[in-house]
């Protein structure tokens, strides 16, 4: 694996290096935007804090960040893997269609808005800590899991307007507490042992392995799931002229 120092390159040279090398480690990342944009292959390790728009349109490559990420990570991502050993900013995984995004720490506002799934593409977003408001709004498919690990005491897993407008997909929360002002168009129920084993365990295995977490300990807690209630859609009533 080639190792380069981001301090010694300008942004264009840095992006060029990442595009041209399948396996690369970049040290001293500091706010450089759009790293890994639309990449189809390769294993990229970023040390430091990459800037906004990390892994936008990612199409198959794997990106590991040893540090925090900023806003708009994995925007419209189509495939691949993003793992962030830290926190992520706002608008994480907007309209993501495929691949996996793993965050060890917290995520900001508007995480997982309008994520989707199509055929073999099943977007998966796992957030180890807590999230801000508007998590999973307009969810159209795929899966979001929020674990609430290492959150400050009293902090809730999700903020206001969690899953508003959601119409497909699933959101799992490691709590039995219903999010505040959850829309009455959504179903919320606690997972039983079988559901945890069959649905959650396979989704969390890789996440736990990558971040060296004890999966059994995580799964020992209570989990709940939010799903759209098909009986209560957001249908506007129209009168065709």
């Amino acid at each position: 694996m080639k190792t380069i120092d981001a301090f010694k390159l300008n942004e264009e040279e840095l992006k060029q290096e990442i595009r041209n090398n399948q396996d690369i480690e970049v040290d001293n990342c500091l706010g450089q935007r759009y790293l890994g944009c639309a990449l189809k292959e390769g294993n990229i390790k970023l040390v430091g804090t990459p800037g906004n728009g990390l892994a936008a349109y990612l199409d198959g490559a794997s990106i590991y960040v040893k540090g925090n990420a900023q806003d708009a990570v994995a925007d419209t991502m189509n495939g691949g893997l993003v793992a962030i050993e830290g926190n992520a900013g706002d608008a994480l995984s907007y309209a993501m269609r495929g691949g996996k995004v793993y965050i060890l720490g917290n995520a900001g506002y508007r995480a997982g808005v309008h994520m989707k799934a199509y055929k073999e593409k099943r977007s998966l977003l796992i957030i180890g800590g807590c999230t801000g408001s508007f998590l999973g709004e307009y969810l159209a498919g795929g899966t979001i899991i929020v674990l609430g690990l290492n959150c400050k005491p009293g902090m809730k897993l999700t903020g206001y307007f969690c899953a508003n407008g959601m119409y497909a997909g699933k959101i799992y929360l490691r709590t039995d507490e219903k999010p505040v002002n959850l829309s009455d168009k959504l179903e919320f129920h606690k997972l039983d042992r079988d559901e945890k084993e069959e649905e959650l365990r396979p989704l969390l295995e890789e996440y736990a392995r990558i971040f060296h977490l004890n999966l059994e300990e995580i799964l020992a807690s209570d989990f709940s799931v939010i799903e759209a209630d098909p009986q209560k859609s957001y249908k506007q009533i129209y009168a065709a002229v």
Binding site: H114, A117, G141
Partner: peptide
Amino acid sequence: RMVPEGIDAISP
């Protein structure tokens, strides 16, 4: 559109 058959496609 890359959305499953029968599911609404919402443009926020």
